[in-house]
Amino acid sequence: MGDMTMINLIWLVLIASGILYAGIHGRIEVVTASAISAAKGAVELSINLIGVMCLWLGIMRIAEVSGLVKVISYLLQPIIGLLFPSVPKNHPAMGAIIMTLSANMLGLGNAVTPLGIKAMQELQTLNPKKDTATAAMCTLLALCTTGFTLVPATIIALRSAAGSVNPTEIVGSTLIVSLFATIFVLIIDRLCQVIFKR
C-alpha cells in the first residue's frame, strides 16, 4: 500500500472503479476517449484561466500598493480574524483571505479563484510543512467550497433563459442555505482540527 492520504485514495477510486466498471459492462473504449478529451479540456481550462488570473492579480496588486487592502482588512479583521487564529494580524495572508471572501460574497465569480490562490500562496509562507495543508488553508477551502454568495448572477441568468417568471426568487433561499452551510462547514472544520491534530 502506498502513502494513502485522502486525495490519493479518492483519485485512485475514481480512476480504478471507472475503468473496472467500463470493462465489466463491455465499453472499455469509452475510457480512452474520455481520458484524452478530459486532458485536453483541462489544458483549455488552464489557458482560459491565465487571462482572468492576470486581470484580477493586476487589480489586486494596485489595491495592495495603494493601501486599499489594508483598509478593508482593518475593517473586516475583527470577524475574519476569529476564523483564522493562526494567521498574524498584519500578515499579507489576512489581506488576501479577506479579499477572497469579499469577492466570493459579491459574486465576483471569476475573481474568486485568482484571489483564493493568492491567499493560499500567502498562507504557504506560514506553513512549516510545505506539502501538507495547514488548518488555516483547510478553513479557507471550506469557506470557498460552500461559496457564500449574495448575488448568484449565473443562476439568475440561467433561470431567466429558461423562461422563469421570477428568476431572482431563489436569492432568498440561496442566502439561507449558504448561511446554514457556512456555519455547518465551520463547525465540521473545527471538529476536524481537533480530531486530526497530530
Partner: peptide, 22 residues
C-alpha cells in the same frame, strides 16, 4: 486548483470538510 497552485500534496481533512458541506 487551490492546493495545486501551492504544491500541497496532502490536503489532510479538507476533502472531508468540503464534501460534508456539499
Amino acid at each position: 486548483v487551490y492546493f495545486g497552485a501551492v504544491a500541497i500534496n496532502n490536503p489532510r481533512y479538507a476533502p472531508l470538510v468540503g464534501l460534508s458541506g456539499d
